[in-house]
């Protein structure tokens, strides 16, 4: 990950440096996700002027502000809905949503399933740190069972969401997952998402060392990402239907692809045909 093999990628070219130091806690995986995203943007040659980043509320929601692009920090849970309007109005923009597990799966869950169904050309990065970090460490829809949070003082007893399965089932064009420790692999996954003409849902396994990790005695950041890498957290990412209390591997890479027409293009084609038929005044 050093600059030697970064192919000329210099992260500073893509950051608002006057906002540094950033707000993220030591050990937080969100910064690595940000790096992987900007690396992918660089390698694809996407112009910063044409890049629109939409994010919601929470730790994930604050990441976008550091990007030297057109950045929108909107209401909690609504970045996908906001991005839907932005992309439909401005198909020329590269629209990326940065959201979190609470923002995307809890308060914004309805927008996720319909964004997957609609298949508009948006890339959605869900930074999953398994907890509401910004508000102090409450349980989230992806918190593993038995984990301690400030609202599960006796351990979480709700099953955790498998967001990728949800995205696949609701028709997302491209679905993938990666861990932050494998940054080049994460960059490659994001590149695939950006290149895909349709809705791509990418789950980035981040880590909340400072709050969630300490509360659950999961060690420092290095130990947390290594645990992700080696898939040693048996109770994590189980699903409701598949043997919920047994070890379940954390699968990464492209998990599903469902290639079908991109919604914006379909709408515009239909509208053009209508105008042709009706001698519209466009």
């Amino acid at each position: 990950m050093n600059e030697m093999n970064s192919g000329g990628f210099e992260i500073r070219d893509y950051l608002r440096l006057d906002l540094m130091p950033h707000f993220m806690c030591p050990g937080c995986g969100h910064g690595i996700a940000l790096r992987a995203l900007l690396w992918a943007v660089h390698e694809l040659g996407i112009e910063k002027d044409n890049l629109a980043i939409v994010s919601g509320i929470g730790c994930s929601g604050r990441v976008g502000a550091y990007i030297d692009a057109n950045t929108y920090h909107v209401t909690h849970g609504r970045p996908l809905a906001f991005a839907t309007g932005l992309k439909l109005a401005r198909p020329d923009l590269e629209v990326i949503v940065i959201t979190g597990d609470g923002d995307c799966l809890a308060i914004g869950g309805n927008h996720l399933i319909h964004a997957c169904r609609r298949n508009l050309d948006i890339t959605c990065l869900m930074l999953n740190n398994e907890v509401y970090g910004m508000t102090g460490g409450q349980v989230s829809p992806t918190t593993a069972e038995t984990r301690l949070t400030t609202t599960t003082p006796s351990g979480n007893s709700e099953p955790a969401f498998d967001a990728c399965k949800l995205a696949e089932a609701t028709g997302a064009g491209l679905v993938g997952r990666e861990v932050t420790m494998q940054t080049p692999a994460l960059r490659n996954l994001i590149k695939k998402g950006l290149e895909y003409k349709g809705f791509s849902f990418l789950e980035v396994m981040s880590d909340c060392t400072e709050i969630y990790g300490r509360k659950n005695d999961l060690g420092e950041s290095a130990e947390m990402v290594l645990a992700q890498k080696s898939d040693m957290r048996p109770e994590a990412y189980s699903t409701i239907t598949e043997q919920p209390f047994r070890p379940n591997r954390l699968v990464t890479g492209i998990l599903a692809s469902n290639d079908r027409p991109e919604y914006g293009a379909t709408y515009r084609d239909q509208a053009a045909a209508l105008r042709g038929d009706d001698n519209g005044e466009a």
């Binding site: 809905a81 906001f82 309007g85 932005l86 319909h114 209508l274 466009a282």
Partner: peptide
């Protein structure tokens, strides 16, 4: 569509205003 604009029926009321702001 006749004037080159876009209509979208969103999944709920909140999504509708959020899309409008976008």
């Amino acid at each position: 569509p006749l004037v080159g604009g876009t209509f979208v029926q969103m999944e709920d009321e909140i999504a509708s205003i959020a899309a409008v702001l976008g």
